[in-house]
Amino acid sequence: MDETGKELVLALYDYQEKSPREVTMKKGDILTLLNSTNKDWWKVEVKITVNGKTYERQGAVPAAYVKKL
């Protein structure tokens, strides 16, 4: 869990989004888990830093590609 009490997951593999509802992640990324009720796809929040600014993006990733921490 992070400092706000939200559950975290670890990306076990790289994943490139294939639709606007998904998010890209790299192996080793730590993501915030938002919903894991679907056994195949979990909704997560990814933090992306671009030019020193951090953005948050929500989307789905394959459940088999992440592990709860």
Rank of each mutant, 00 (worst) to 15 (best):
K27P: 02
E56A: 15
K26V: 07
A64W: 09
K18I: 05
S19C: 10
K43I: 15
E17G: 15
D29P: 02
N38L: 07
A60E: 15
A11K: 01
Q16A: 12
L69C: 14
A63S: 12
Q16N: 13
Y15M: 01
E45V: 12
T49R: 08
W42R: 00
E56Y: 15
A60H: 15
T54I: 11
A63G: 03
Y55T: 10
L12G: 00
M1D: 12
L10C: 12
K26D: 02
V23T: 04
A64E: 09
M1I: 12
S19G: 12
Q16F: 14
L8H: 08
N51E: 10
R21C: 15
I30Y: 04
V23D: 02
T32G: 06
D2E: 13
R21D: 15
L33H: 00
Y13V: 11
W41T: 04
S36D: 15
L69S: 01
M1H: 14
Q58C: 11
V23Q: 01
M1N: 13
K43R: 13
V66F: 05
T37C: 14
K47Y: 10
T24S: 15
A11Q: 00
G59H: 01
K53M: 13
Y55W: 09
T32K: 12
Y15N: 01
V50S: 09
V44K: 00
T4W: 12
N35V: 06
G59I: 08
K39P: 14
E56H: 15
V50I: 14
T49F: 11
E45Y: 07
T32W: 10
P62D: 03
L12I: 09
R21S: 13
I30N: 00
L34R: 03
K47H: 11
A63I: 03
V44Q: 00
I30D: 01
I48L: 10
W42Y: 07
I48Q: 07
D29C: 08
L69G: 01
I30F: 04
V46F: 07
L10W: 06
T49Y: 11
L12V: 06
K47N: 08
T37R: 09
E3C: 15
P62M: 05
L31A: 06
L10F: 08
Y15G: 02
Q58W: 07
R21H: 14
V23L: 11
Y55N: 05
W41N: 01
P20T: 09
V50N: 08
W42N: 00
N51H: 09
K53E: 11
L34F: 04
I30A: 00
T37M: 10
G5C: 15
K6M: 11
V61R: 00
I48T: 09
N51S: 08
L10E: 10
Q58P: 03
E7T: 13
K27L: 04
K47G: 04
Y15L: 02
E3D: 13
K43A: 10
E17I: 06
W41E: 02
K26T: 07
D14H: 05
I48Y: 13
K43E: 15
D14S: 08
V9D: 01
K67H: 09
N38K: 06
L34H: 02
R21A: 14
K68F: 08
Y15H: 03
V50Q: 09
A64I: 10
L69F: 09
E3F: 13
R57N: 03
L8G: 01
